[in-house]
C-alpha cells in the first residue's frame, strides 16, 4: 500500500502540482477511471513502451549469448549440450584471436587519435578563416554522408591497384614507382582502413571542436592578447582546456563505436589479406556466421562485451565528462 502511494505521488508530473478536484461521487465510468489512471502514472506510462522494447532487444540476446557461450550450439547440428568453459578456452588459445585483439587495439587507437588530431586542426583553421566558414563547414562534413557500404565501395575504387586514382596521383608526383594494392597487401591494408576511418570520422570531431570553441568567452582571448600571449599560447592555455569536456564524451562514444565497427573492415578487406586486418568483431562474426559455431562466437562476444564495459568504465573515470545534471 505504502509503495503504491509513493509511486503515485512521485509519478504525478511536476510533483508540486496541486491535487485535482476529486470527481463527483457516482461518476465511475470505466473510461474516466482509465483516464485518471493514465494521468496519474503519465510519465511512467510514457517511458514504458520504448524501454520495454529496448530491454527485450538487449537483454534477450545478451542472456542468450551468456547461455550459448557455455554450450556447443551450432547452426549445423540440431543438438546442443552444455560444455562448460570449453569455448572460452578455445578462443583464448587461438592465436588468430590474439592477432585480432592486437589489430583491434591498433585500429581503434590510431583511428581515434587521427580523427581527434585532424578534427582539431581543421576546427582551428576554420575558426581562423576570414570568410566562407559556413561553406567550408558544409564541405568538411561531407564524409559523414557516406554509409559504410558506399564508403567501402568508393575507397576500394580509389585505392585500386590497377585503376586507382590514388596510385595514379602518387606515381605522378613521384612518391612511388609501382602501383600499390592498398587493401590487398598485408603491409598496407590495416593502415589503409585506418586512413579511411579517419577520413570518415574526423568530421564528428571537427564539428564538436568547432562548437566547443565558440562557447569560449572572447574576453579570455582579449585578456591574453593584452598580456602579450601569442596565438599558440592562446590555443594551449585557453582553447584546449575549454575543449576537454567535449573531448571526453566524444572520445568515449567514438572509441566504443570504432571498436565495435565491423562494416568498414569487412567490406574493404574482409579481414585479409591473411588476417592482416582481422579485428575482434570480424573474428566473432566469422566464427559464428561463416563457421556456424554459435557457441564459440557467443564466448568471443561475451569476452568483447566485458572488455568494452571495462574500457568504458576506465574512460569514464579518466575523462572529464560534461555534467549530465545540468541537462536533465
Amino acid at each position: 500500500m505504502r509503495v503504491s502511494t509513493t509511486v503515485t505521488a512521485s509519478a504525478t508530473q511536476g510533483g508540486r502540482v496541486p491535487a485535482r478536484e476529486p470527481d463527483p461521487p457516482g461518476d465511475r465510468t470505466v473510461l474516466r477511471r482509465a483516464g485518471r489512471f493514465v494521468d496519474r502514472h503519465f510519465a511512467v506510462l510514457l517511458v514504458a513502451p520504448g524501454l520495454i522494447w529496448m530491454m527485450v532487444l538487449l537483454v534477450y540476446p545478451v542472456a542468450l549469448n551468456l547461455y550459448y557461450s557455455v554450450t556447443n550450439k551450432s547452426f549445423q547440428y540440431p543438438n546442443t549440450s552444455v560444455v562448460g568453459f570449453d569455448n572460452y578456452a578455445a578462443f583464448l588459445s587461438d592465436p588468430e584471436f590474439w592477432r585480432a585483439a592486437a589489430n583491434s587495439l591498433i585500429w581503434t587507437a590510431a583511428s581515434i587519435v587521427g580523427q581527434l588530431a585532424i578534427g582539431f586542426v581543421a576546427a582551428l583553421a576554420v575558426e581562423g578563416l576570414a570568410r566562407g566558414r559556413a561553406v567550408v563547414r558544409l564541405l568538411l562534413i561531407v564524409p559523414w554522408m557516406f554509409s559504410s557500404i558506399v564508403l567501402a565501395a568508393v575507397w576500394r575504387l580509389m585505392l585500386d591497384e590497377l585503376s586507382g586514382v590514388t596510385n595514379a596521383a602518387l606515381m605522378a608526383i613521384g612518391i612511388i614507382d609501382q602501383p600499390i594494392a592498398f587493401f590487398g597487401d598485408g603491409a598496407y591494408a590495416l593502415g589503409a582502413v585506418i586512413v579511411m576511418n579517419i577520413w570518415f570520422g574526423a568530421p564528428f570531431m571537427f564539428l564538436a571542436f568547432l562548437a566547443g570553441m565558440q562557447t569560449v568567452s572572447q574576453d579570455l582571448y582579449e585578456a591574453a592578447v593584452t598580456d602579450g600571449a601569442g596565438y599558440w599560447r592562446q590555443v594551449w592555455h585557453i582553447t584546449l582546456p575549454a575543449l576537454r569536456p567535449v573531448v571526453g564524451t566524444l572520445v568515449i562514444l567514438r572509441t566504443i563505436w570504432v571498436m565495435n565497427n565491423l562494416d568498414f573492415v569487412y567490406l574493404t578487406t574482409g579481414g585479409g589479406p591473411r588476417d592482416a586486418t582481422m579485428t575482434l568483431p570480424l573474428y566473432a562474426f566469422r566464427v559464428g556466421w561463416a563457421q556456424f559455431e554459435v557457441g564459440r562466437m557467443a564466448a568471443v562476444s561475451v569476452g568483447m562485451m566485458i572488455g568494452l564495459l571495462a574500457l568504458a568504465l576506465i574512460l569514464f573515470r579518466l575523462m572529464p565528462i560534461e555534467g549530465e545534471e545540468d541537462r536533465n
Partner: peptide
C-alpha cells in the same frame, strides 16, 4: 551502444 552489434544481431 556498448554491446557489440555482432553480439546482438545473431541471437
Amino acid at each position: 551502444y556498448v554491446f557489440p552489434p555482432i553480439l546482438l544481431v545473431v541471437p
